[in-house]
Design a binder for these strands. Structure first.
Lengths: 255, 255
DNA sequence: CGCCTTCTTGAAGGATCTCAAGAAGGGTGG
DNA sequence: CCACCCTTCTTGAGATCCTTCAAGAAGGCG
């Protein structure tokens, strides 16, 4: 099931260049990273705890969750990753995983060797900077998740997560009406929001009866985006998505 | 109240070299970073939202919290920082704050210009790597906080946070009996654990009556450390503290 | 058609919150 | 050194959001 020929890293380059400024040569260095594609099933760690890793995983299709658990074994999803994310980029500097990675539904990932990433980062400091910055976006999301889980009631909390995912998945539609695919079960949504599946179900029904979301077969529609954003207390600033070109950053000099 | 002469960055170097390998020259480059000391009061943002920053803050004494809030203005502390932490190191690559910083009690910080940090990182790639890695430790803590707030009941949750702080503050004593100073109010502990101050109070009483903690005037004693660790479900691995020398990392080559 | 996952519903219980007020502690000024 | 004040800690009682347990309905796939 593995492919070694010409992985497509353009989505990852797009992600990096949405926040960081990279020259053509630097972008090419990222595009030329090797990797082999792999299909991963849900409910099975494709990055387990306890084993040092030497590859980072780029998501090509599907969604991936980062899983932790408490002492009783109750699981908590601490991050959800979408196509274009390098979901364990941090492993480049921290190869011992502190969380396991699992696909939320069948997903395709590209395993990229640390050695190649490190070589590109060493050769092009601007690439290293872009990777570091990308990690910090994930950290900003994590920080918002602490607020979400800690300080918002179930309805607001779920609405907030859905708004976040709509934004990160580039929901289509425009204006006030958005649609996107969220290949996630209610039980997984519960694991991400620190609620029970039962309560997620009831809360979704409440959001549906408010006319804020429709959800059929993994496809979510948000017919009143602005109202949903308001009820979710959603301010997308922390995502640092859709920065204008002049807001993109570069510390190291061109050279 | 500002001092410009010879700031002491040794604690920060110690922190970096506890996880990363830096040559003498590289350590010296960090030690030589400029900065001016400043005393900051509690309950007042010393890094506010909305203003781009050009300094990172090293904590010299006292404790600092990273503050977020939900739509109703309920505050959530998403990180607690201790002396030796560069509490907004991420601002080096992400100068627009997504959270405000506030001292939890009177604290002394050292403001270090981004320009100097960036220059050191550019000159010494191993320094850049160590800084990146340090940011990822903070991210691992954040991830554990999501679990803590989401999946542990009040007693376990508070015990877990106290175990974390004991470890990060290098509680003294040894064996099974540790003591350390935690200059934090119960209300702030509530803001960090996403509980109410009232419930924190009752839960601390319960921990006290279990003989797991004593807390007088900001000094915490944990007379039965192992029992507390167990009841807290505390596994310090995520802190990556006290690594053995051979566990420390360095990607870039010496040069 | 049958099976397994996912979604849905009901009822009861519990952990935590809210509101309210009083006690204790620490600092400051007279 | 005492009196005062403001912060912090403590206690009580009632309310509520969410969980737990249990079971049935719906949906997707071979």
């Amino acid at each position: 099931m593995a492919q070694f020929n010409r992985p497509n890293l353009q989505p990852f380059v797009d992600r990096l260049t949405s926040r960081s400024i990279l020259s053509d040569e630097e972008q090419q260095a990222v595009l030329n990273l090797p990797g082999h594609a792999e299909q991963v099933q849900s409910n099975r760690d494709f990055v387990p705890l306890g084993t040092r890793v030497d590859h980072a995983c780029l998501i090509v299709a599907g969604m991936v969750g980062r899983f932790d658990q408490n002492g009783e074994g109750t699981r908590q999803i601490t991050a959800m990753h979408v196509p274009g994310d390098m979901c364990d980029l941090h492993s480049v500097v921290q190869p011992m995983p502190t969380s396991a990675l699992q696909a939320l539904s069948v997903a395709t990932i590209l395993r990229v060797p640390h050695s190649a990433i490190r070589a590109a980062a060493a050769r092009y400091p601007a690439v290293a900077e872009a990777l570091w910055r990308d990690c910090m976006v994930d950290a900003a999301i994590l920080s918002e998740w602490v607020v979400n889980v800690g300080r918002r009631d179930a309805k607001t909390r779920i609405a907030h997560l859905l708004c976040e995912m709509a934004t990160r998945l580039h929901a289509t539609g425009g204006g006030n009406d958005f649609v996107f695919d969220l290949p996630v079960t209610q039980a997984q949504l519960a694991e991400a929001t620190a609620l029970t599946a039962v309560h997620v179900n009831r809360t979704l029904q409440s959001l549906r009866s408010d006319g804020l979301i429709e959800w059929h077969q993994r496809v979510i529609r948000m017919p009143r985006w602005h109202a949903l954003v308001e009820s979710a207390e959603f301010d997308p600033a922390y995502l640092q998505a859709e920065l204008r070109p002049e807001q993109r950053l570069r510390i190291v000099q061109h050279g």
